[in-house]
Design a protein around this nucleic acid. Structure first.
Lengths: 249, 249
DNA sequence: GCCATAATTTGACGGAGCGTCACGTTTTGA
DNA sequence: TCAAAACGTGACGCTCCGTCAAATTATGGC
């Protein structure tokens, strides 16, 4: 029994090795530079072995996505220990999203791509399910904040507005903002301020529009972010996260 | 000289034929189903001829994008003859964006992809410039509304907020919303109301947050959209647009 | 320790699509 | 009418994909 477990452990370890290698290749040579052959070569396994783990290139990309979302979730779970009003937590969620996008720009590209394009058509069903499950957990976390806000009277649903719609607003804003910033050097007619600043500000406008109390005019959400950043800083030793946190404060 | 012009006309016509064919193929078989060979086969030209027009597959995709953005621009230009307050016009711009995304879902996929992925790395510089120029015109149109609003006193820039940031907000919201709705059947934990409704509503919240007057509580923007839809309906004979307009009213 | 059997790994192979280019065909205009 | 130029073609070499029979390694009964 112990033997079996060791085998499985090794298998899992190798899968992680393949994934890390794929991430590195994408980082260095872009998505089009990623081939099954190159992963095999770098890891000194053969192509066939890589295919034992992943059905195709698209499957690897979805696995990278899932991996990334898992990381985001771990960030969020740490953040959620933060004590605060629901709106504070919502702001923290959005900024974690961004923190993650900056930490793993390659995967973020994939997250956008994995939703829209035909990557999903090719990936294996199991892989897709893993991605979707992680997605769902995050959605749940956001909706939780909205429900909490309604319950404690910070937020009142207007006629014809649903919780799900309120959840989509900040999500769309964050997703779109990251996408636009990734392309910022292509959009020459706009001057891009630091992304954190713009997203923070626009999110505040949107939530103010919801009349979600306390409004940004009544409360210092910048302080919320500082505190959340400090909380995370104590729990992480990832240097790249630490540097991004530095900007937040 | 007339002969030369005829030649050029024919060339242009053929390019359009290739593009229309590519669009059709993508619509039927997805982006991965698009090959240079199949375009050649359907149009009864040879592969070499297709390559006379487009340097590679990615070049075709960028061309489709540019084509799409041109179409969006033509929509917007018609819309801009609408007489109204700057905020009304901004709402119309966002909804045109959406109208366009529904009309050409395949190209919209490409627009997102063409920004994020390595498609741009491969496409020809001329093609990219065409796409970027069209992009810029649209940005300009949006910024124009913000400037007009500031000038007539409908909007006051708060400290530390720039026109460009205010431009990014609705843009990111619209882009992100379309992206999320394209993936709506994958996100099972959220109930998706009709996209027009959600975007219209969230945009109103965001602009209310800007304190952009008249606020959605003081003014019936639904009527604005109805009127804009009627305006467009009289000018178009595209049945698919007409049906979407029907929903708006 | 030995060997039969099962599990795992390998890389050669056929196929798909890309992009090129030398050759054949058509057009041009003198 | 014909030489020169412009245009169109599809066979070719290449890269990468995904497969699978054969080679290698691990397992466990004796």
């Amino acid at each position: 029994m112990n033997t079996l477990t060791r085998k499985q452990r090794e298998l899992q370890q190798r899968e992680q090795l393949f994934l890390d290698t794929a991430r590195q290749v994408i980082r260095e040579h872009g998505v089009s530079g990623l081939t099954m052959e190159i992963i095999a070569e770098i890891t000194e396994y053969s192509k066939g072995t890589v295919y034992k783990h992943f059905t195709c290139k698209e499957d690897i990309m979805c696995a990278l996505c899932a991996d990334g979302i898992e990381y985001l979730l771990s960030l969020l779970e740490q953040m959620m220990s933060f004590e605060g009003r629901p709106r504070e937590k919502s702001v923290i969620i959005a900024l974690s999203y961004l923190l993650y996008a900056e930490r793993y720009p390659e995967e973020f590209d994939l997250i956008v791509a994995a939703r829209n394009t035909n990557i999903r058509q090719k990936a294996s069903p199991e892989r897709l399910e893993a991605t979707d499950n992680a997605d769902e957990k995050i959605t749940h976390l956001i909706k939780e904040q909205i429900h909490a806000a309604i319950e404690c009277g910070d937020l009142t649903l207007q006629e014809g507005v649903t919780v799900d719609q309120l959840c989509l607003g900040p999500w769309a804003l964050s997703l779109g903002m990251v996408a636009l910033y990734e392309a910022s050097d292509l959009i020459k007619s706009i001057e891009f301020s630091p992304m954190q600043k713009t997203l923070y500000q626009q999110l505040n406008f949107l939530l103010d529009g919801y009349q979600w109390h306390p409004l940004s005019t009544e409360f210092d959400y910048q302080k919320t972010i500082c505190n959340a950043a400090k909380l995370l800083e104590n729990n992480t030793d990832d240097p790249s996260i630490r540097s991004t946190l530095g900007i937040l404060k």
